[in-house]
């Protein structure tokens, strides 16, 4: 399997001298094509910082990030920008949608930035909306949607330009468990059936177990990096059963 992202001695320090905060203290890891990787840790552990560095949104204090074996510190801003717009997709916890624009326009944004031809845009947006099952909402304003629908729009936006890697930062963090599951299903469907590499940042252990690899971070270091065994892996079906049982239990409690 090809290594898509590799880091060597990745360090990130905020502030200077006495007030310096070492968010990452030397990270070495390899992410392979087609993997689904969960970066797990408590808040303040450095997991978000790591994802930002992997996604080239930030520059490390020291150490290097290689994409397809190429050192990204040698790259110009223009090259980094086109790497992100052509090959990466992003899903954020807070959605980050333009509330006054329509769903269609929100999903279109990455295509505008990537300078996709006008003739191809419509088809790509319609296709992405179809995958997240929101074709009927294309002309709605983003503000008129529910939380789950908003995150589905964000996924459509992340996949509209056919990325090779999707970075998802707490994608289900703002959603209830039932809606969260739909989003999870969508992400893992992209990973299983479309060969998209998935990098998830989460503190949700159940969500992490859906991935085939978990990287555990604490205090700026990797403390654990292991492949999830098939038996251990919570399948989507099992999760659904679990959620259904929980909902049922709650309803019964209410009746009492």
């Amino acid at each position: 399997m090809n290594v898509v992202i590799e880091t060597k001695g990745l360090k990130k320090t905020y502030g200077k001298k006495s007030s310096a905060f070492h968010a990452l203290k030397g990270i070495d890891l390899k992410i392979y094509e087609g993997e689904s990787v969960a970066i797990v840790g408590k808040s303040g552990s450095g997991k978000s910082t790591l994802m930002h560095l992997l996604a080239l949104l930030d520059t490390p204090t020291s150490g290097k990030v290689y994409i397809d074996g190429k050192n990204t510190t040698d790259m110009s801003n223009k090259q980094l920008n086109s790497l992100r717009s052509d090959r990466f997709g992003f899903v954020f916890q807070q959605f980050f949608m333009n509330p006054n624009d329509t769903v269609y326009e929100n999903v279109m944004l990455p295509l505008k930035i990537a300078k996709t031809k006008y003739s191809e845009r419509r088809k790509k947006v319609e296709n992405a909306l179809k995958i997240v099952d929101l074709s009927s909402k294309a002309k709605n304003k983003a503000t008129d949607l529910s939380g789950g629908q908003k995150q589905r729009v964000c996924i459509a936006r992340a996949i509209v330009n056919n990325p090779e890697i999707i970075f998802a930062d707490e994608p289900t963090g703002n959603l209830d468990s039932a809606t969260g599951d739909k989003i999870t299903d969508l992400l893992f469907d992209l990973n299983h059936n479309h060969g998209v590499t998935l990098v998830l940042v989460t503190h949700d252990e159940d969500l992490a177990k859906l991935c085939n690899r978990i990287i555990r971070i604490a205090d700026g270091k990797i403390i654990d990096d292991y492949a999830v065994k098939k038996s251990e892996q919570t399948s989507a079906e099992k999760r659904h059963e679990k959620v259904a049982a929980e909902v049922k239990a709650k309803n019964e409690e209410k009746k009492k």
């Binding site: 949104l57 801003n77 223009k78 920008n81 086109s82 992100r84 990466f88 980050f96 930035i113």
Partner: peptide, 12 residues
């Protein structure tokens, strides 16, 4: 936030 998103998505 909008500017941040646009930059994250690769806008120069």
């Amino acid at each position: 936030r909008e500017i941040g998103l646009e930059k994250a998505l690769g806008m120069s």
